[in-house]
Design a protein around this nucleic acid. Structure first.
Length: 497
RNA sequence: GGCGCGGUGGGAGAGUGGUUAUCCAGCGGCCUGCAAAGCCGUGUACACCGGUUCGAAUCCGGUCCGCGCCUCCA
């Protein structure tokens, strides 16, 4: 049971069912998510797992306490794509230096992008190149225990050795049998493999490739081993949640799991395996060849998508308008709808008496989510249910119990990382600034409103409308409302951009 | 070829063996001198064909269509 009383249920790819989430250690809930390979700007598809698991991170922090959750997201900075890109972008520079430059810049871009999307920093973001020793140690163990073998400078994992008695365990996660995989394999099998499914743990490096000394000569790790080595180092042999995109379930996660269980002598690597669905653009798979490939940076700052840029909070909300396990279609319509929703919520909060000034920071940040919303979120992150409750609070804060619902709305949006005290403060200041900076004569407007009020009192509709139209032509919009107590007409004005 | 996922009203998107999802748009009404905003009400929806059932969009079988993975990929 969580400290705040709600029960979290999560869908486990391994069991193909929603499971009650029971942390191994409630004082240290541990989650590992596969992070980026830093060779280029993150594309918008990369943003989905970052956002989805950030929401889960926030839910876990809310449930078990902010100091009782460890979220690890790795940085893959050794990879053949990186080598190729470094050589291309930094010709004439020694490869190691070129790689360092490339990965450092790309990683910085990634961090900036994710921050703009409202993602908290994971607890740790270990780099592969800083944990080569741990990988070598793990590979050594695997060889010693007969789970791996050396062949022509390569070290390969013996897939058939991941078993329980007579029962092979390889394929349990992605739910496919070894026979199926071999039958359906379309890749040529390297001659040094004893079995077609065996995969690389370590491979030799040429002089023009990054390499590290190892018992098997100068070489570099295979892709899968880094996650096994780093998760063990920072989270231990068995942890609570392993996340990533659905495309990673095979072979990456299958391989990770085989390596870790064999090397650690454990039955399980992670208790729950979670996978987010793929992102599409206007109904098509995003790919460079289709010309519908967009980076997070382009969406945030460029004009390639829909002819304009999109704020991080809008992108985040749009990304959360579909259940994380389903494919999501990103389109201008979806973004526009998210933007309108968000705009309405912000207006509702501001109009309901929440004032985002520094003096209120502590009180605002202490506001929590509504319990029904939390229950929906805890049900395998049922965002549709979450959105329903957000709408309810927005509606109620516009009409009924205003302040209370605005507080719930803020507390909920804040939990989801869609708004924060600072983002609302900036929004509020920007709105005020728009009024202040606009080239308007407040005195004149005040007089005009008074004149219109007088005209209205005489039921001189024509004159009243003329004044309103005149102001409208100057970019000032008047809106009337009634004082709920006295019934008196209240006229507000705002600058229309 | 193998494995898997999905097809819900004009659009988005949940859920569920019998009871309003929700949001946007539309329509009707309230409020308003009129606007704007807001409020209330409103939809022949659940790919197709069979089967189980008192009752299925929800369970079972089949068909069609779309998609993903099996190769770097979030």
């Amino acid at each position: 049971m969580s400290k705040s009383g709600h029960k979290i249920r999560l869908y486990n790819t391994l069991s193909k069912a929603k499971e009650r989430f029971e942390p191994i250690d409630p004082d240290n809930v541990r989650m590992y998510v596969c992070g980026p390979t830093v060779y280029d700007y993150a594309h918008i598809g990369n943003a989905r797992p970052a956002i989805v698991f950030d929401v889960l991170f926030r839910l876990l922090r809310q449930t078990y306490g902010a100091d009782h959750v460890t979220y690890l997201r790795n940085i893959t900075d050794v990879d053949d794509k990186i080598n190729a890109r470094a050589a291309r972008d930094f010709p004439g520079v020694p490869l190691n230096e070129a790689i360092r430059k490339l990965t450092a810049t790309t990683e910085r871009q990634y961090q900036d992008d994710m921050k703009e999307l409202g993602c908290l920093d994971p607890t740790r973001q270990p780099r592969a190149t800083e944990n080569i020793d741990e990988m070598i140690a793990m590979i050594t163990t695997l060889i010693e225990q007969g789970h791996a073998y050396e062949a022509q400078g390569h070290v390969l994992f013996r897939v058939a050795s991941f078993r329980q008695g007579e029962q092979t365990r390889y394929g349990e996660l992605s739910h496919r049998s070894l026979d199926d995989m071999i039958a359906g394999a379309r890749v040529e099998v390297a001659p040094y493999k004893k079995d077609p499914m065996d995969f690389v743990l370590w491979k030799p490096s040429d002089d023009d490739q990054p390499g590290w000394d190892s018992p098997w000569g100068n070489g570099r790790p295979g892709w899968h081993i880094e996650c096994s080595a780093m998760s063990r180092k920072f989270l231990g042999p068995t942890f609570d949640i392993h996340g990533g995109g659905i495309d990673l379930s095979f072979p990456h996660h299958e391989n990770e799991r085989a390596q870790s269980c064999c090397a650690n002598g454990t039955e399980r690597m992670a208790r729950i395996w979670m996978h987010n669905g793929f992102l599409q653009i206007n109904g098509e798979k995003m790919s460079k060849s289709l010309g519908n490939f967009f980076t997070v940076h382009e969406l945030l700052h460029g004009t390639k998508f829909g002819g304009r840029s999109w704020p991080g909070d809008v992108l985040r909300l749009a990304m959360l308008t579909r259940h994380y396990r389903e494919p999501i279609d990103l389109s201008v319509d979806r973004l526009t709808e998210a933007e309108r929703m968000l705009e309405r919520w912000k207006r509702a909060m501001a109009a309901s008496g929440l004032d985002f000034v520094e003096a209120n920071r502590g009180a605002c940040e202490a506001l929590g989510p509504c319990s029904k919303l939390l229950a929906a979120l805890s049900d395998d992150m049922n965002m549709a249910g979450v959105l329903t409750h957000l709408h309810r609070h927005a509606k109620a804060s516009e009409s009924g119990t205003r302040l209370h619902n605005a507080q719930r709305l803020f507390g909920s949006l804040n939990l989801l990382g869609i708004v924060s005290f600072d983002s609302m403060k900036n929004w509020q200041e920007a709105t005020e600034k728009l009024q202040e900076n606009a080239d308007v004569d407040v005195e004149k407007i005040t007089v005009a409103i008074a004149q219109r009020k007088a005209a209205l009192a005489e039921k001189n509709w024509a004159e009243a409308d003329r004044i309103r139209d005149q102001l409208a032509s100057e970019g000032i919009r008047l809106t009337d409302s009634k004082d709920t107590e006295t019934g008196e007409r209240i006229t507000r004005w705002e600058v229309v951009k």
